[in-house]
Design a protein around this nucleic acid. Sequence first.
RNA 1: GCUCGAGUGGCGGAAUUGGUAGACGCGCUGGAUUCAAAAUCCAGUGACUUCGGUCGUGUGGGUUCGAUUCCCACCUCGAGUACCA
Length: 1045
Amino acid sequence: MKYNFNEIEAKWQEYWAKNQTFKASNTSEEAKYYVLDMFPYPSGAGLHVGHPLGYIASDIYARYKRHKGFNVLHPQGYDSFGLPAEQYAIQTGQHPAVTTENNIKRYREQLDKIGFSFDWSREVRTSNPDYYKWTQWIFIQFFESWYDKEQDKSLAISELEEIFSVEGNKRVKAACDEDIEEFTAEEWSTFTSEEKQKILLKYRLTYLAETEVNWCPQLGTVLANDEIVNGVSERGGYPVVRKKMTQWSMRISAFAERLLQDLDKIDWTESLKESQRNWIGKSVGAMVEFPILSFPKGEEKADSEKAPSSGAGGIRVFTTRPDTIFGVTFMTLAPEHELVQKITTPEQKEEVDAYIAASAKRSERERMADVKTISGVFTGAYAEHPFTKEPVPIWIGDYVLAGYGTGAVMAVPCGDQRDYDFAKHYDLPINNIFENADISEEAFSGKEGTVIANSDFLSGLKYKEALQKVILELEKTGHGYGKTNYRLRDAVFSRQRYWGEPFPVYYVKGMPQMISAEHLPLTLPEVEKYLPTETGEPPLGNSTEWAWDTVNNVIVPNQEIDEETIFRLELNTMPGWAGSSWYLFRYMDPHNEETFVSKEAQEYWQNVDLYIGGSEHATGHLLYSRFWTKFLKDRGYLSVEEPFKKLINQGMILGTSAFSFKLGNTIEVYDRNSLSFQGKTGESKSKKELFENVTDDLNTVKDKYKKAFITKIDISDKPIFISRKNMEESQDEPGQCENALSHLFDEEIQSRIQNKEFTIRYHPYSVHTDVSLINDSNQLDIDGFKKSRPEYYNAMFIGEEGNFIDGNNDTYIVRREVEKMSKSKYNVVNPDDICENYGADTLRMYEMFLGPLEQAKPWNTAGITGVHNFLKKLWKLYHNGEEFQVSEEKASADSLKTLHKTIKKVTEDIENFSFNTSVSTFMICVNELSVQNCNQREVLEPLAVLIAPYAPHIAEELWAKLGHSDSIVTAEYPVYEEKFLVESTKNYPVSFNGKMRFTMELPLDLSKEEIENTVLADERTKDQLSGKAPKKVIVVPGKIVNLVI
RNA sequence: GCUCGAGUGGCGGAAUUGGUAGACGCGCUGGAUUCAAAAUCCAGUGACUUCGGUCGUGUGGGUUCGAUUCCCACCUCGAGUACCA
């Protein structure tokens, strides 16, 4: 009977859906296990073979845990708010909800075809009002909270009001805005409610503040730091500029230390923890204040001419090296620093203003790209050194960032390379304060063991001692104090977009008010256009019904706004990471209308035991999610401190893009290996030879491939990139196809493409090149092939690397590039095609077989036949020709040994997430059982269970044929028994000077001496020794024998 | 620049409390079967070789009876991060 995978898979997928096989219960006596995938954003492009990799791994683990008797929660859902659907809406006018719905449908179809054991009854969608109701609710909780640094915990804002009314704010140690003035309880009681609200806002864990944000004009929105890559937006690659705007922010910085410390408690990869550590960026040092001198000593001028001195009393700097304070020879402020205007002397004003204007014009990106150019201006002002009381000149320079620390540095050129370069460039003094350090060429940055010199009371002290002493001294004299600084900034939480969660906020006299929780969700209004309004308001400003009636608690038309009972609602929406920060908890209790997750459900499921997803979320989702979990724990809504106990990053599956070049000159060589046609003989050359022979041309082509492509491509004869089907306009990024290719063409061709004179098409790599390229006279016949199989002809050029000569003696060179799979690169392989041609079980096992889960690896459809053949072989074990047949007799010792060896290895592999090696183990097992002609139930039944997590469809089918009426999912996992593997002999490798020469089969119960004697008595040993006595004989029983000559 | 990770056949990759390097699969070669192909099955497949062997896990050293595995130095590639004071 044939292995009819299409039929089997459809049958069991239907069975699982109908019987709700994977529905998890919240009340169970069994131990729980929570396996979660990062839920996908449902893009218009659908899934490619790279997406399911992590899902397959987690699915195998979930199914394995079920066999092991765990109550497994393995849900799936959609992160369905986001930019692409909105961009598409802007371009086409289609409502994002509609496209999102369609995309989800398509995703679901694709996912179902792969046979995942998701509990779909728990599906969540972040864009669903039933879901974002709770996202809004959590936002309100943030608003109603403040952070007490003494308890290191978030508390209710009402407790803070309580404290204020009793003792004012003097003793409150809160994570809050820095510009808060002290007040007493009496003063608090005299404040108007408005003034109180204003003050409280500075303490809330989500707050409204004018902050400098990353503004992306093309996307029309602000972006968080982790949404910017290399100074451009992660999505779309548009420039980002700094801009001051009033925005909602989340006070994540309050949690910096906990987020850092708790990394030690979770089982994540070291590299991921490391990137979070870098992102949090803790540095320990001191805050030092340098008083401002209006003018240097001895240059006193009349009062009227004095530069205004700063009200703040001085320049505050943060430094990690306060021990080098005697090496300070100047100070540098960021051009944006607020003191700059106040301290600049009239003589320097013009120059300073010009510099500020110039650096403001430079985009973030330019500033980053241009690290080497040293620039700065003297302000004319001086500060006073806190210890020497010497005047220190104050400069401004754009190597100092406004956003880090205080936006000012004390420059120690002898110890910091940037200060050193700056000092050299502007001819500022460099004082050496290190013993035995050469600073003639560069700064000295040593720490441990360094001895400080020329530094008054610090001289002669080592780095660590000096550090302690100087901080003590600073605190004593009131010039500074020890301080820990974090790079982690508060997260901007507003987006000027339509397709996101609306804030449950309305404004009364400019002060934000929360809509009370019982009136949630505040649903997204309809708008005519998804673009910003003409006055520059976010898209929600286009809605004519976006006002809040505080009497009836309903949304009402804007014209009813009276600022008495009816107020304007917030126009911003929440960022993409809002919904994804807490979704793991919603799966535990997805239909609860009373709360975001019930206490019972959360306490049963706790948190995620195993989380699988991409490492690109290292500093975004994974950090925010930890932040929200800690917050909700503080406020008593959760019992766990961390969302994800163990995390695995699956590596990316890379696609292959190819470039073809047609050259005018002829290269008389082709590589038949690279064309996977078979049968006829042809000239065969190794890749190495091939590359050697065409070195010159290749180098030319590689260096100038764009040019070669442009000059040689014959566009009238159809473009090189051709497909079986027309390029579908990508829903995410229309026009993407042309854009992606445009750099390959010259202007004339580009314009012709734009005029639609040519259609550019693409082809996925997954075509089977099963047609011969060789004609009857044993010649490479590209023209003939092209005519008979145009679709394969082009696929060949896209998919295969090599050199080709056609009938006109024109040579084509095809080179591949391995890169991220993406629709815009035309290198996408669709899992549906694989399921159609080979089956889901083959796809699942092949993806696992490709290599270690965490490693990036290129996709190559060619290798899939190996796995497919393995499944056919497995099927054959249970069949005798056409008939299903298993024997009830006892299995042979060999077969039992094979089985138990497999149980042992596969179980170990699953526990270690080494899925690639377990697939080989299955192959070895089936190969051995085939040779043994094993068809006993005693072996084949446990084998079916063993493989069920990997290839669930075939396992179910075989399980049913074995006579079971219930699903294999309920079957117990086979138990490994040592007794079947006990060996009596060992095939010892016998080495001479560490080199293995031959092997000897010896009983395992021999003593060391017996082994040694037997080996020495052997003829082959005597040959090796050629009469001499060995200097030494090493015998490791059960392992090896080594003789030293 | 800094941090982390990795370098093994034609390819994807196995093997590390130090103990037979290259499991398993792809590709390739030869054979069986076939009118022919596909599919399937069998055998072979690291390099060199005077068929005795010799060399071989990025490079150069070291420790050891024995090193892909441990130590030192270097090279290359990948990922993250970047004027962080």
